[in-house]
Amino acid sequence: KTLRLNHNNPEDHPLHKSMQFMAERVEELTDGDLKIRIYANAQLGTQRESMELMQNGSLDMARSNASELEAFEESYGALNLPYIFVSADHYYDVLTNDIGADILASSEDKGFIGLAYYIEGARSFYANKAIHSPADLKGMKIRVQPSPSAIRMVELLGANPTPIAWGELYSALQQGVVDGAENNPIALTSARHGEVSKFYSDDGHTMIPSVVMISTSSWNDLTDEQKEAMRTAARESMDFHREQWDAMSAEAVETAKSELGVEFVEVEKGPFIEAVLPMHEEAAAKSPVVADLIKRIKAAAQ
C-alpha cells in the first residue's frame, strides 16, 4: 500500500528530508507493506487544497503549518499565539507531550489527523533598522502572512501589517514597499532577505510548527501494526527534524552575519510580551477549547 503525501517545499528543503526520513522508517517498520510517496513543490495542490482533499479521502497525507490549520481546526490557534512559549525547550516539550498529542488528535472529525510536528524556529522582525522595543515598530509597514493572528499581533505592536506574497517580498523589502518582515533566521539566507534587511531583531514572537497529517479515512484503513509504525516513524522524524533544523538555523545565522553583514540585535522581550498579551485573553474568550489549551501550555512552562 502506498500513501500519497503532498507538500509545498522543494526537494532540498529540510522539511522534505524529514518527511523522507519518516517515509523510510515506515517502510522499514512495516517490512515494505506500507510506503509513502512524497510529492514535493505542491504538485498535487496548495496546502489548503490538500486539506480539502484529505477531508474527502482523495489525498492520503499532507504537510501544512499551524497557522494555516487554524482555519480548519481551532485548537491549532493556541500554538500560533505570540509568546505562548517561554523557550525552545518549553515549545518542544509541549509539542511532544500530551498537549501536542491532543491537538493532533482534535481534528479527527474534521477529516484529518495530525501525526507529527516539525519545528521551524522562532520568528522575529527584520528590517533596515534595529527594533529594540514596540516603540521602534511604530508606523512601520511590516509584511505578514494573511492570518488574523499575525495581523492582530503586528497591530498590537504598533506597526502596519502588510500582506505581500512570499515571492514578492524580496523586491518589496528592497524597494521599501514594506519596511520589514518577520520570519526565522533561515529566511535571511534561503530567500536572500539578508541582502536587503540588515538588522535581525531577536524578539522571537512566535514559534509556529509545521504539521504532517493523514486523512481520517486513510488512517482508518490502516491495520493496527501499520498505525503503530506510522506513530513511531512520525515521532522519530520529529527529533530527526529538530536536530536538522537547529543545525541549519545556526549555520544561517553565521552566514547572515559573515557574508551578508546582518546584525543580530538582542531584544528585551518584556515590552513586546506586554503589548500582545491581550491576544491570549481574546483567543481564550473566543473558544473554551483554546482557553483550556492555553492554560495547559502555560502550566507546562513551570
Partner: peptide, 22 residues
C-alpha cells in the same frame, strides 16, 4: 486512481481553486 465521488470532488475543487491566484 480514486472513486467516482472523490474524482468529481477533486476536479470541481481544482477548477475553482486553480483560479485562486492574485
Amino acid at each position: 486512481f480514486m472513486s467516482f465521488d472523490q474524482s468529481v470532488y477533486i476536479v470541481a475543487q481544482q477548477v475553482a481553486s486553480g483560479l485562486d491566484s492574485f
